[in-house]
Amino acid sequence: MKRILVLLAFTALTSAPAALAQQGGNPWANQFSPGQAREAVREGKTVPLSKVFKQLEREYGGYQLGAELYSRDDGSTFYEIDWMTEDGRKAHFTVDAQSGSVMNRRGG
């Protein structure tokens, strides 16, 4: 019985990080594939990521390190963007993908 409990605990602990990684560390969001992201922009459901990058560059300087598009169960979409500022500090932005406005900034 103890072996079964240990095995179940081990399985739960090893699978949870993989599930979170697939969702960008956000358990309440689903990551878009590159094709889904292009389709959302083409359909006008999200602003192009290039537009968001230009806005961040104007406001903060620097450049993009990585970006992902996510959706929540309520239908809202957002970008998670890692950014390097001009002075070499790393920042993380959460941007509303429908309006392009910064919702949250950490670091930098």
Rank of each mutant, 00 (worst) to 15 (best):
R89Y: 10
F78S: 07
K51P: 01
V47S: 08
E43Y: 01
S99V: 11
Q98A: 15
S50G: 15
N104C: 04
Q22H: 13
D82A: 08
K45C: 02
M84I: 12
V6R: 00
L65C: 09
D96L: 03
Q55N: 14
N30I: 01
T94C: 00
P34Y: 11
M103C: 02
Q64N: 12
F53G: 05
A18Y: 13
G62A: 01
G61V: 01
V95P: 03
D96H: 08
S15P: 03
L20N: 10
L49F: 10
L65G: 14
G75S: 05
K45R: 14
E68W: 07
R105I: 15
F93A: 09
I81V: 14
A91C: 08
A12Y: 09
A12P: 07
M103K: 12
T11R: 00
N26E: 10
A29L: 02
G108S: 07
H92W: 12
I4P: 00
Y60M: 04
P17I: 08
G66R: 14
I81E: 00
Y79Q: 09
Q31N: 01
N26K: 07
D74Q: 11
N30S: 03
D87T: 11
A37T: 03
R106V: 12
R106G: 12
S71N: 14
R72L: 13
A16N: 12
Y79N: 10
G44L: 06
I81S: 01
F93D: 08
V41T: 14
D96K: 10
A97S: 08
Q31Y: 00
F10M: 06
G108R: 06
N26L: 11
F93E: 09
S15T: 15
G75W: 05
Q98W: 05
S15W: 15
D96W: 06
M84E: 13
T11Q: 02
A67E: 12
S33E: 01
G25C: 11
G100C: 15
R58I: 02
R72K: 14
S99D: 13
Q98V: 09
S76K: 15
T14N: 07
A19S: 14
Q23A: 09
N26T: 04
N104F: 13
L20F: 13
F93Q: 09
K90F: 04
A91D: 07
L49R: 07
A19Y: 15
A91S: 11
H92R: 15
V47Q: 12
N30A: 02
W83V: 01
R58W: 03
K45S: 08
Q31T: 05
V102E: 05
D82H: 04
G61D: 06
H92N: 15
G44D: 05
E57M: 02
L8M: 13
G108I: 07
S99H: 13
M1E: 04
G24M: 01
R106F: 12
S99T: 15
A40C: 04
L8T: 02
R58A: 10
L8R: 01
V41I: 14
E68G: 12
A37R: 03
S71Y: 09
L13R: 02
K2R: 00
T46L: 05
S15H: 13
F10S: 06
A16S: 10
N104Q: 15
V52H: 13
V95D: 01
T85A: 03
D87N: 11
Y79K: 08
L8C: 14
E43H: 03
Q98N: 10
A67N: 13
A40M: 03
L69Q: 05
V102S: 05
